[in-house]
Design a binder for these strands. Structure first.
Lengths: 112, 112
DNA sequence: CCGCATCCTATCCGATACTG
DNA sequence: CAGTATCGGATAGGATGCGG
């Protein structure tokens, strides 16, 4: 336990780095809500993200086995992304963050 | 609920931004474990952080009322930082991240 | 002891254009 | 449809030195 107060042993950083992409939480929330989704569907759900960033973050999540990427060799091409069971284990964290965020917002409003 | 799938309404981002400084979680874990701490004590507990970054992140946490900063007008100067009750409400989140991080590490080891 | 100012670098991220 | 390639700005963060 005390070990985790040392940065080198702290296990908190890695999950944070996974979630810390600017768009990662929103991507994950969408895929947790609807899986699978095509690339274009995710893009439509998050209009402000660029294709480049969406591709990049999806690939990062895939490499950590938090989502899957399935390519269907059709014309036109189809690529579907889905949350994995492992990715679902992030749900409690996102929930906790969500609840805290709501309280934090209330606090900011009442304090000014 | 569905609103939160839209980036503009998602309440997950703000708490993440609070925690997302490179050193924020380690600083908070230390202050949750020991409060108050002098600036130099925190620095000693996290040797790799630079003074600049430590100062910066402490001030950010202070501005969000997650920690307090108390200056004692002595010679030599003494400045003490302590977690606030509000800051303590982040503990479940850090715990959840911590547990997930441990499992994630196990998974990475067994998969190679 | 505590912190600010300056300079520098790396990386993130957006905009845009192009491709199988 | 689902990308890749390239450019460029913004920002985070490190190194170093000065100051009350």
């Amino acid at each position: 336990m005390i070990d985790d107060l040392q940065p080198s042993h702290c296990k908190v950083k890695e999950p944070l780095e996974i979630l810390l992409g600017k768009w990662t939480p929103v991507i994950l929330l969408n895929l947790m809500h609807t899986s699978p989704m095509r690339f274009s569907e995710v893009k439509r759900a998050i209009p402000d993200i660029t294709q480049k960033m969406l591709t990049k973050q999806l690939r990062e999540l895939e490499s950590q086995e938090i989502i899957t990427r399935e390519v269907y060799p059709e014309v036109p091409p189809r690529v579907e992304y889905a949350i994995t069971p492992y990715g679902r284990t992030l749900e409690p964290i996102l929930d906790a963050l969500h609840k805290w965020g709501i309280e934090h917002k209330k606090r900011l409003q009442s304090s000014h």
